[in-house]
Write a protein that binds this DNA or RNA. Structure first.
Length: 489
RNA sequence: GUCUCCUUCGUCUAGUGGUUAGGACACCGGGUUUUCAUCCCGGCAGCAGGGGUUCGACUCCCCUAGGAGAUGCCA
């Protein structure tokens, strides 16, 4: 059997971790088995539809770097891939179900539905449709029609018996039919199908071989199997993926932090890191290896290594992965990646001047291993482009020194600095080391006041490299500023 | 309420009857280092509980507890 899997998002919001993880597993499964990965847009809820959300689907996966073999934008032999363009199909098959006695017209108003629901809740009964219209007589039906009530079509869930479906991960799941959602709506009064109908029909006609979706869909599994049977079709294979949770064990949501891919992207995360981390949420390769490229995952992914239990999303670990991938970048690539952040922060002009480009390029090797996110860049290099607004004298003075001594150190340091450009880093280190010795203090205590003078903080990129990038003239001026401040305050 | 699924360090996980229960993140300590970071070394910490089955259970079965999801003219 040819493997054909799909990702079927509903364009009602931005692509989030959970959805992308589902998409990734489907994609990897297709690639690992020489199958096809299909994108289908489930835009049947026109009240929640967002044009932006549709664009977001394209942008997100383009950014992540995985493409579908069939979909609304690339075409394919099983289209159209927008459910809103397949309405006739759903209507036709909904009617077929009515004709075959597997579905019926329901004229109940939303108000009545809300009313019975309320009563059920008050009486601690299971909420659900009371099947009021299931056995309407022809006369009753005609009466509703004459009143102009537009009906919905509901599925006739068998009152007895049980339905069994097999899940690749979870095994057999058997459900008594009386526990299945009583007669769910298949076709809404606006003529659009509900998820259940459209999903089953499309998966059938698109010849989907495996349905991989989140475990929140398990309860509708039996219903879908019933639907396939009512149509006389063979259900595909099912595999319900473990869900992604927040720190508190609840379904991951905004209150846990970023959830949409566009947020992560804006916060300076790399697609490689996101993919790598997400792949390991509910799936593993072995007991040691955990760094994988998308390409590698494409060949090693297997359903057998899926985990059943839900996984908690760990922002810290994602950040760790991100640091790894930032360090793997070529300097040239990293430059392009951090540029937007430097511009956004106003650290450099838009577009950057040639001089700014030169400094950025020089700074990359200094900051690359210090970054965990692209957003770290502006803070790390700001001192190279902007004057230090304010010095903290506490920062200038090393713990073991006092103001007097620091002043003395800094003045001596300034003398050495004048010839800084004439020496190699090794020479300079030697010179400062000798100075430290002659002043009776440690190298660190000699360089710290200088570091703060140059960069404005005690934590900075390597000092010598920073001085070179900043230029000797500016460096000396900053040292002078600090010396003056030490003398006057 | 009802139904379903799940349960190994704080978190992600390896483990498929016999292991000192392994790795990673986080955290803590140490080393390298001009700060920080990187890198290296070390440490902390776990089989939810109770019954079985078995010579022997993290591994198999049952129960309990806990967690989650579903219960829509949303997907």
């Amino acid at each position: 059997m040819k493997v054909r899997v799909r990702y079927a998002p509903s364009p009602t919001g931005f692509q989030h971790i959970g959805g992308v993880r589902t998409a990734l597993f489907n994609y990897l499964f297709a690639r690992a088995n020489g199958g096809s990965f299909i994108l289908r847009i489930e835009d049947t809820d026109r009240t929640r539809y967002m044009e932006e959300a549709l664009q977001d689907i394209y942008e997100t996966f383009d950014w992540l770097g995985f493409r579908w073999d069939e979909g609304p934008d690339v075409g394919g032999d099983y289209g159209p891939y927008f459910q809103s363009q397949r309405l006739e199909l759903y209507r036709k098959y909904a009617r077929k179900l009515v004709d075959s006695g597997n579905a019926y017209y329901c004229y109940c108003s939303p108000e009545r539905l809300a009313r019975i629901r309320k009563i059920q809740l008050v009486n601690k009964m299971a909420p659900g449709y009371d099947r009021h219209c299931r056995n309407l007589t022809d006369d009753e039906r005609r009466e509703y029609e004459e009143k102009g009530v537009t009906p919905v079509i509901r599925f006739k869930v068998p009152l007895e018996g049980k339905t069994l479906f097999r899940d690749k991960l979870l095994g057999e799941i058997e459900t008594p039919n009386e526990d299945i959602n009583p007669d769910p709506v298949l076709l809404k009064s606006d003529g659009f199908p509900t998820y259940h109908l459209a999903n089953v029909i499309d998966d059938h006609f698109m010849e989907i071989s495996h349905i991989m979706r989140a475990q929140e869909w398990i309860p509708s599994g039996p219903l879908h199997v019933l639907l396939y049977r009512a149509f006389g079709w063979e259900p595909p294979e099912y595999c319900h993926l473990p869900m992604v949770m927040g720190k508190d064990g609840q379904k991951l949501s905004k209150r846990h932090g970023a959830t949409s891919l566009r947020e992560f992207r804006h916060q300076g995360y790399l697609p490689e890191a996101l993919i790598n981390y997400i792949a390991l949420l509910g799936w593993s390769y072995n007991d040691t290896r955990e760094i994988f490229s998308l390409k590698e995952l494409e060949s090693i992914f297997t359903l057998e290594r899926l985990n059943k239990a839900p996984a908690v999303f760990d922002y810290k670990k994602l950040e760790w992965f991100n640091g790894i991938y930032i360090r793997k970048k070529k300097p040239e690539e990293l430059k392009e990646l951090i540029l937007p952040y430097l511009i956004e922060d106003g650290v450099v002009s838009d577009p950057p001047t040639g001089e700014e480009y030169r400094i950025i390029e020089g700074a990359i090797p200094l900051i690359q291993e210090r970054m965990r996110r692209l957003t770290d860049a502006p803070n790390l290099v700001r001192f190279l482009f902007r004057e230090i607004e304010e010095y903290s004298i506490d920062d200038v003075i090393p713990k073991k020194l006092d103001r007097e001594k620091t002043l003395k150190v800094l003045k001596a340091v300034r003398e050495l600095l004048i010839d800084f450009d004439k020496h190699s880093d090794e020479d300079n280190e030697m010179r400062f080391r000798e100075l430290a010795e002659s002043l009776g203090c440690k190298l660190g205590d000699v360089l710290m006041p200088l570091r703060v003078a140059i960069t404005g903080t005690r934590v900075s990129p390597p000092l010598f490299g920073s001085i070179k990038l900043l230029g000797l003239e500016k460096s000396l001026r900053r040292v002078d500023t600090v010396i003056k401040q030490l003398e006057t305050t």
